[in-house]
């Protein structure tokens, strides 16, 4: 009985679902502040949401160690990732290429994950963080590549220190981690190039 959660819930049409999820992530990564919708459905074990599960199936495989929060690591998710994506879970944040944080969990410091090196800044982690909502929170102003002048977002459910964390991440450029924020079936990407500030009152 417990195995049904592990062996089911992958894409019905893996080739086309992965393509559509990737294009949404690519477009959002290229245009930070733009909210995209994950159309394909995956059903990962609780408490990870459907959209984050779809991103995992699209991008993770045996080449990408995955870090999970303690709650996710205790769930059926490691087995599900292993069966459907062939991805191994690592306890070492430094080794992870992807990290998943479910809604409400503590967001670890970005600096604990692989930042890449000055020669190979691409060897860094991508963090997939589920939050309450992508709108309605404290307004943040985004500037940087992919944004015409500036973009305004208001994600709800990020730690209070988020702007400082993101600022420290930006200061490391070209090293640093890239973020994918997920709420429901919608995503918002914040690559390391994006400058994030609180809106001045």
């Amino acid at each position: 009985m417990p195995d049904t959660q592990i062996f089911s819930g992958a894409f019905a049409e893996p080739v086309f679902a992965a393509q559509s999820v990737f294009r949404t992530v690519m477009d959002c990564m290229a245009r930070p502040g733009t909210i995209g919708t994950i159309a394909a459905t995956a059903r990962p074990p609780q408490p990870l949401g459907a959209a984050a599960g779809a991103i995992a199936l699209t991008l993770c495989d045996h080449d990408t160690p995955v870090w999970l929060t303690p709650q996710l690591a205790k769930s059926k998710l490691p087995g599900w990732l292993s069966f459907h994506a062939g991805a191994a879970v690592t306890a070492e944040k430094q080794d992870a290429r992807f990290a998943f944080v479910e809604k409400g969990a503590v967001v670890p410091g970005f600096g604990l994950f692989a930042q890449g090196t000055q020669e190979y800044p691409d060897r860094s982690a991508t963090l997939v963080i589920e939050i309450e909502s992508l709108e309605g929170g404290r307004p943040l102003v985004l500037t940087g590549p992919g944004i015409r002048d500036e973009a305004m977002v208001g994600p709800q459910g990020l730690p209070d220190t988020f702007v400082a964390l993101a600022g420290a991440n930006r200061a490391m450029f070209p090293r640093g981690v890239d973020l994918i924020l997920v709420a429901g079936d919608r995503i918002l990407c914040l690559p390391r190039t994006t400058v994030i500030n609180n809106r001045e009152a």
């Binding site: 393509q19 690519m26 990564m29 800044p121 991508t126 890239d178």
Partner: peptide, 14 residues
Amino acid sequence: KRMIRRAILKAIAI
């Protein structure tokens, strides 16, 4: 495709 897609995402980020 996954390998190339991951490379594309990092390329966009840097």
